[in-house]
Structure formats: C-alpha cells, structure tokens
Simulated assay, not measured.
Amino acid sequence: MSIAVCLLLYGFAVAVLAPRLLRRVSTEGAAPRIAVAAWLAAMASTVLAWMVTLAIIIIDLVTHRISLFPARFMDSCLLHLHDAAVGDYGGHIQTGLFVLSGFATLAVLVLAVRLGTTLLRARRTTLEHARMARLAGRHHPGLDAVVLEVDHPAAYCVAGKPHTIVVSRGVLAALEDRHLDAVLSHERAHLDGRHHLLLTLTRGLATVLPRVELFTLGASEVARLLEMLADDAAARIHGRDAVLQALLTLSTLPTPPATAEAALLPRVRRLSAPENPPRLHTRIAVTAITLTAVFIPVAAIVTAGIGIQVCAV
C-alpha cells in the first residue's frame, strides 16, 4: 500500500511540475525529438502510475476482503503496512476504502471507454476526410498529391488507406516550385514519422482529461514540436531557406493554411537562426527528465512485484 501511495503522489507531482519544466526546455525547439519523447514519457508515466496505484489498492482490498469479524483480518505484510499508515479503525474504514476503490475503478473504466471512443471517432473522421479529399480533388502524379481546385490555400496530410497529401490551387499559385517541394516534403515527413498517431493519442488524453495541464498543454506542445521535426526533415532535403521562404509565403496569404499557422514564430526563428547543434545542457536536461519519468514508475512497479512475492512466501 505504501508503494501505491508513492505512485499516486508521483503521478500528481508529474502532472503539476512537468508542464512547466518541459515547456521551459522545449520552447525554442532546440532538441525537438528529445522534447517530444520527454512529453510522451511524462504523460505515459503519469497514466501508468495512476493505473498501477488503482490496481494495487484493489488487489490489496480484495485480498484482505471485509470480514464480519474485524479480528479475523488476514495477517500479512500488506495489511500491516496498511494499518500502520491509516491506523486500525476496524471494518468501517475498510468498507469505506473498498467502496472508494469501487468508485475509482468505475471512474477509470469510464475514462478508458471515453478515450477509446475518442480515438475511434478520430480514426473514422480521418479516414472519411481522406476519402472525400480523393473524391473532390484530382491526383497529380508529379506531386504525388491530391489537388483541390479551390483558391483557398490549403496544404496538409491525411492519414488513411492510402495516406493522402492535399494541396489547393491557391497554394500551387502562391509558391515557387522549390518552395512547393519543401511543403510537400514537410507533409511526407509527418506521414513517414507517423505523427498522426501521436497527435491522436495526445489529443485524446487532453479530451478525456481536460483539467489536467500535463495533457492539455502536452497535446499542443507535442503538435508544435512535431511541426518542427517535419521542418527539419524538409530542410535536410531542400535546405532551410526553402522551408523558411515557403512558410513565410504561406503565412502572408489572406487565410494562411494550418501548416503555416502552427507555432509560426518559433518555427521561423529556428529556421532563420544559424544551424547549430542543441546545447549540451539542454540535451542533458530533457534526457534526464525523460529517463526520470520512465524509471520511477517502472522501478516502483518492480518493487511492488518483489514485495508481493516476498510477502506471499
């Protein structure tokens, strides 16, 4: 039970502290790949910590189920730790804990169902969007993209079967060939990196837990960092200047597409600055946060498993 308490406190500490720490080290996108890993590790470790906490509490309460005679409580290591932490108040307190764990289990199940429903709905919407885009536009073999015959500027990718890159006639008219190639490479980088899966998951968590800043801010930060990763992938092929000029051109249109709007200022600043590797202390800080977020819950789970085995002997 003491491990469950530690994991619960750890989850709340990460949910409160991680957003500020991670945003501070990832604002300028010095190491976007590591920063994305850090955000995902913090979110995953928090969810894991809370789930394992609930599992430990339920196992403890079920194993030491309520007896009609409090004196006949099973004598075990976990029960002694439990009594030492909360005091031996008899069957009423244990009944209350059992009921509380039942409500907590129900709440987790409801959240899990909502998350699953959100993810399935997002997948259906994406597949339908890709299908409608292919029907409404025409495939351009030279671009390997679907062109929409509209003046409204649009340039984006849609995951589906098959994946689809969509550009509008307005974008084709606004961009030079090398700038257009940079935009298309940017969108292909999203699809090759399976960024849509990360966005769907993080946005799903933000939807079902809208009051937890770790998930709401994390979803927007991961989206911003993934745009930077796609910028870097396109820059390796076409050069930073081509990507920057394409981004600036799209941003000056009357209604810029989402590709140009997403975290525009940090992206322009990164592409305009000299290409320098991330500072060592930035890499160390983000890597340390990532490893800590992963190690603590895993170590606690292993400790709990060893403790259960020892107590069972």
Rank of each mutant, 00 (worst) to 15 (best):
S76T: 15
M228Y: 11
L22D: 09
L143S: 07
A288Y: 01
A104K: 00
P254C: 08
D88I: 00
I34V: 14
A136S: 03
T53A: 14
L226R: 15
A107C: 04
I301N: 04
S220C: 05
S251D: 12
V222L: 06
E227C: 15
A130H: 01
V268M: 14
L291D: 06
H196T: 11
G193L: 08
R65L: 08
T207Y: 03
L247N: 01
V52T: 13
L120I: 05
E128S: 03
C6S: 15
R124C: 02
V110W: 06
L148I: 10
L54S: 13
G307E: 08
R188E: 10
T95I: 10
L148A: 06
R121V: 09
T249L: 02
A4L: 11
S26P: 09
L119V: 14
H139S: 01
D177E: 15
V14L: 13
V166Y: 11
S45A: 11
C77D: 13
N276S: 04
T290P: 04
R134E: 03
P70L: 01
A223M: 05
S220P: 02
W39Y: 07
Y89W: 05
H92Y: 02
T200G: 14
Q94W: 04
V310R: 11
I306V: 14
R20N: 08
L97P: 00
A219E: 04
G91Q: 00
H195K: 06
F215P: 07
R121G: 04
V212T: 15
M74C: 05
S185W: 08
I289N: 02
A84K: 02
V36H: 01
A288W: 01
I306W: 06
S251I: 04
H163K: 07
D144M: 00
L119R: 13
T53D: 14
S76K: 06
E221H: 10
A136L: 03
V113A: 11
P274N: 10
G96W: 00
L143G: 07
V147C: 01
A133T: 01
E187L: 07
L209F: 12
L100S: 13
V208G: 05
A130I: 01
L180G: 13
A104N: 01
W50I: 14
S251L: 05
L265R: 15
A262G: 00
L119D: 09
H186E: 13
T249S: 08
L40V: 15
F215S: 09
